[in-house]
């Protein structure tokens, strides 16, 4: 009677059975595995951040120097020479804020694109959800962004710009930038495994994309009729929205339909990227 079924050791460990077999079709996203390996995502991101400025003289100061120099060049070209308007925002703030979020995006994109090939020794030797590699590359850029953001706050103080309530939407636009970068990064990294051409395409891609985004000019320079098409580029919403969130005025980014176009196109990139990545994932170890 007293022999109630005490859980045996085997039961409590609940060692589940893993079935290995060829996957057919699209396969699932396997989010459970992703969650189980979340600590690895943390460590990989931490490694990327930790290693970035090793053996440099100036260290993390580069995170500030780069966008500052870019800003000076941009201001000279587009301000002093081309005299492109800035919707009434002081030009340094206008350019620097856009460059910050742009750099976050372009760095995440190119790091993620190269990530699988750069980590081939891990891919061919150990199992873990491959998705973690481009994901942690994308997340690694946030620290640089945060450092450079401090300078932006200083600039705003200098130009006496007081943030309005719209500042609370700032994280949303950052998230949109990261999601877009991850979406493209998934495509590029998986393609790069099979086609090393991607390595050569990436620099052009980011250059053209920069010109196709309102970094050096405001959205208001684009004629009304074409804005919907222009907004298919998710970075339009990111850059314009980021400025609007900071300054809260001057910018024309109050057009919700345009924002939705950008968000939608970003989600399409992410979801298609996820599926393509999952589909190609099974041959990574053989091809990379």
């Amino acid at each position: 009677m007293t022999e109630t079924t005490l859980p045996t050791k085997a039961d409590t460990q609940a060692s589940e059975t893993l079935v290995i077999q060829p996957t057919r079709g699209l396969g699932s996203l396997n989010l459970r595995d992703l969650w189980r390996y979340r600590e690895l995502a943390y460590f990989l991101t931490w490694r990327d951040i930790k290693v970035r400025y090793k053996q440099t003289l100036l260290g993390a100061a580069w995170a500030i120097i780069q966008p500052l120099l870019q800003m000076i060049v941009f201001n000279f070209l587009f301000g002093n020479l081309a005299e492109i308007p800035t919707d009434g925002i002081p030009r340094p703030v206008f350019t620097y804020s856009a460059l910050l979020v742009w750099n976050l995006f372009s760095k995440a994109l190119s790091d993620a694109g190269r990530s699988l090939v750069a980590n081939r020794n891990m891919i061919t030797k150990v199992y873990f959800p491959r998705l973690l590699i481009p994901l942690s590359s994308v997340l690694g850029g946030i620290v640089d962004f945060a450092i450079a953001f401090v300078i932006l706050l200083g600039m705003m103080f200098y130009y006496e710009i007081t943030p309005t309530v719209s500042i609370w939407t700032l994280p949303l636009f950052l998230l949109l930038a990261l999601v877009t970068a991850l979406g493209i990064g998934l495509w590029l990294s998986a393609l790069n495994v099979n086609y090393r051409d991607i390595r050569y395409i990436m620099p052009f891609l980011t250059q053209f994309w920069l010109l196709a985004s309102p970094v050096a000019y405001p959205l208001s320079e684009i004629s009304d009729t074409w804005r919907w098409l222009y907004s298919l580029n998710p970075m339009v919403a990111v850059v314009e929205g980021f400025r609007w969130a900071l300054v809260g005025q001057g910018s024309t980014y109050d057009a919700m339909p345009l924002l939705w176009i950008s968000i939608l196109s970003s989600l399409v990139l992410l979801i298609s990227g996820l599926f393509y990545f999952r589909r190609m994932e099974r041959t990574f170890a053989d091809m990379v």
Binding site: S15, V19, I20, Q21, N119, N121, M122, V126, Y127
Partner: peptide, 29 residues
């Protein structure tokens, strides 16, 4: 689970640790 089989199946019961190499992912810096 580094690579997928082309046919057949394998069932594994329990947590697997695999050592195909030591020092995977070591970063020199």
């Amino acid at each position: 689970r580094v690579t997928e089989p082309s046919q057949g199946r394998a069932e594994i019961t329990g947590r697997v640790g695999s050592l195909l190499e030591v020092g995977t992912g070591f970063h020199p810096e």
